[in-house]
Design a protein around this nucleic acid. Structure first.
Lengths: 147, 147, 147, 147
DNA sequence: TTTT
DNA sequence: TTTT
């Protein structure tokens, strides 16, 4: 009745995170990240296999995701596997498996802060975030950010 | 197009593995394992939170699971997260997230090797497996078993 | 200035832990654990390769190690790699690399704590120990033990 | 006599890798990477704690390191902890602990692809490496590189 | 010796 | 839905 439940992901966000601020002051971020592996099949063709993972972050990681994570960004997440059921809008019970993150390191990504944003982006802090990967533990205060 | 997708589980089997032997000679094992964490809530009560994980093993791990893993046994699994959809018997599309194991270490379980099991336990191979934990990589031959 | 530093070990203690209780109330446990891998070499001979790891635990994990870990026991440790130098008794500077544990799960092992000799073993608590492994985080109180 | 021995590192190279090509055709790469954690001490001051790790890579990872890894680059390494002794040039026995990598993902580094480097950056391969993270398993052929 |  |  005890054990280890650990997930380690390093991948790219499919979309911007969705962040909800709850009444109790906490925040939750939801997003999915893709991890891909490439190999050659028997015919010698390169095959890419992509998995999508549902990630959930709570305060204070949720606020960090809100500020610094965007579609396409690369991120390292350590967390645990959880499953839960919910009723969809038609009253059908659905099951979902999610990775609840407890540690996160921002790694940047293709849509780089350095002016890569579609609109103008001259945010200094944003630049720092990607050139200075930010490891954050859930237990840290949000203002403990190392950047 | 790259990344890390790693899951580490240490838990107990909810049931005996279900093993299917495919026509191509490969085998697949399916089982679920529980990982639990215990903590005290604000009221100081001990709370246990259990997660169930769907595990899939392919040859040669599947055969090892078939021989040595039983309901209640404790096992260490390293693998990757995968999701897939399938149609259930009513034609409804279902989604399932599974951990495909690539490394496994048998740890024994409640029916301990030392004859500690309250009821009769005359499984010799089971005893061996738990007193000599067997780390097995998917790439190993099945007769490479270290016990 | 950021990163991930994670070690995951599952092995057996070479000796009983050495535990020191510091003046400030904290405790430190030192022990080493062996992890082995077995494979067949080109000649088809079974080869076992054993690595020894220096493990350091601080309060409250140190006290748990003191109470429940013994030579031969199997344990799961998650922690981080650290290196430090010190002067040995001859004044020579030595370097040592250690794994500082932050999470631990007791798995039992051959020489069971409660006098579980290979002969008669009807210890109930022993059974519990193995069927209810104890995962402990460094942040837990020592009396949060799930057993 | 079995177990798990796993190290996961995400950090930056202190220097360019040193790569030796052995007579048997294999290559070995040696380098060290830094992982840092930042926290606030009791006085509220930001403290950075850096650990250095000796990394060893064998063919084919060694060749990839030779081509794509440079001082300052950020890299993800999964491997195992190993220790060995050797005699230094004065005949003194020394001990060293190393991480032998079995999986590697290139993450780029401070000299970002998008010309973010303050000085001139005309390394094409470096650009590719960081904008297209390369996960490589030791078992892959060197020409299986996903880029 | 890196990185911010 | 990402990334190369």
């Amino acid at each position: 009745m005890a054990g280890v439940n650990k997930v380690i992901l390093l991948g790219n966000l499919g979309k911007d995170p969705e962040v909800r601020h709850l009444e109790n002051g906490r925040a939750v971020a939801n997003f999915s990240i893709a991890t891909s592996e490439t190999y050659k099949n028997k015919q010698g063709e390169k095959v890419t296999n992509t998995e999508w993972h549902n990630v959930v972050l709570w305060t204070p990681l949720a606020e960090i995701a809100e500020k610094y994570l965007n579609k396409g960004n690369q991120v390292y997440i350590e967390g645990k596997l959880t499953s839960r059921s919910y009723e969809d809008k038609d009253g059908v019970t659905k099951y979902i498996t999610e990775v609840v993150g407890r540690e996160m390191t921002l790694l940047g990504g293709p849509s780089r802060p350095e002016g890569a944003s579609p609109a103008a982006d001259n945010s200094t802090s944003n630049n720092q975030a990607s050139s200075d990967p930010a490891p954050v533990e859930e237990s840290n205060e949000i203002d403990d950010l190392p950047f």
